[in-house]
């Protein structure tokens, strides 16, 4: 059996999946990035290593998410792909008939439109993070509700209040206002869910033809309140795949599997015990002044990122350092 490792390093969470060659999940991890993507990935790989032993053979590695280039260099990725493609691939694997994917993560929200099994259109939130996971986290915290219970509490609502959801700051002031008026917590929470869905559909989903089957992926899909609010707004069923929060990582793994890799560049699970450091400098070779990041494992330079020309890719190159 062949095994593929998929890693999705996002702003809020780092997800790791090991899948077999048919795309079945062998192990999946959901960790907090907490501002240190390298540490999050090492922690994750360490857990996998402790569970399966360090001789677990990996036949290909795919990395996605906003830290994909850095992590790709650290772990030795065979495929480095953007989140949209990764989510689309995972969604299509789960349900080949899918026509719409709604993905809401920590700081991004996306819509992917699929017809006949290929992506035909997509959009991402552009100017504002209203309605993404970070905001929900923050509001749950403020109302003293663990984020895990957010959805259940919201679903107890019978008379949701209308919350202004265009902007997170205004949504928050509006929620406080509604609290001061004596509205129930669950009504405010479900009102917030509806506001976020409204905001998503009129910004990210603007002008898109949202047809079923619709998959709801990303960390926010855990929130049942948002799922129900989407179902009410669209008048159709929303499917939340069992591994909704790991779809990016699974997609990255599937991309590695599709790439037909002969020999993986994976550096192995040993990197969990090695010293990994980065150091940046500004290249003054031309007016571009690229910010170059050197990645070191055990003090040895393994990769350089950030150059627009090719000269720093040659690791022996040191002239104008």
């Amino acid at each position: 059996m062949k095994r593929f490792l998929g890693i999705d390093v996002g702003s809020v969470s780092t997800d790791i999946a090991v899948i077999d060659e048919s795309g079945n999940l062998i192990v999946g991890l959901y960790l907090r990035t907490a501002g240190d993507p390298i540490k999050a990935v090492r922690d994750g790989l360490f857990k996998i290593k402790s569970q399966f032993g360090s001789d677990l053979k990996i036949d290909g590695v795919g990395v996605t998410g906003s830290a994909r280039f850095l992590i790709g260099a650290v772990v030795g990725a065979d495929v480095i792909k953007n989140e949209i493609t990764a989510h689309a691939v995972a969604g299509l694997h789960y349900n080949p008939k899918v026509q719409t994917i709604i993905e809401i993560g920590g700081q991004d929200s996306k819509i992917i439109i699929i017809r006949d099994g290929i992506v035909v259109d997509f959009a991402m939130n552009s100017v504002c993070a209203a309605g993404t996971g970070s905001f929900l986290d923050h509001q749950a915290q403020r109302l003293g509700i663990p984020i895990e219970e957010f959805g259940d509490v919201a679903l107890r609502s019978h008379k949701p209040v209308r919350i202004a959801g265009r902007c997170t700051v205004f949504a928050e002031s509006d929620m406080i206002h509604k609290q001061q008026l004596g509205h129930k917590r669950e009504d405010i929470l479900f009102g917030l869910c509806e506001a976020l869905v409204r905001n998503y559909l009129s910004n990210v989903g603007r002008g898109k033809e949202i047809l079923p089957p619709i998959l709801f992926q990303g960390g926010v899909a855990a929130n049942k309140g948002i799922k129900v609010a989407f179902e009410r707004a669209l008048g159709t069923e929303i499917i939340v795949p069992p591994y909704f929060s790991l779809m990016g990582a699974i997609g990255a793994g599937l991309l590695a599997q599709e790439a037909n890799i002969k020999e993986s560049k994976f550096k192995g699970f040993d990197i969990t015990e090695q010293d990994i450091t980065t150091k940046g400098f500004e290249c003054r070779g031309c007016s571009n002044l690229c910010e170059i990041t050197n990645v070191f494992i055990e003090g040895k330079l393994v990769a350089r990122l950030g150059g627009r020309c090719g000269k720093w890719e040659d690791l022996d190159y040191t002239s104008s350092l």
């Binding site: 792909k81 953007n82 949209i84 493609t85 290929i118 992506v119 259109d121 997509f122 991402m124 552009s126």
Partner: peptide
Amino acid sequence: SIDEQTGLAGITTRIEAFIDMLKTK
């Protein structure tokens, strides 16, 4: 849409995804 607030990461992701889509098509 480009201005001084535009993040390179966002642009890169959108361009890559757009190209992936066109290549598959």
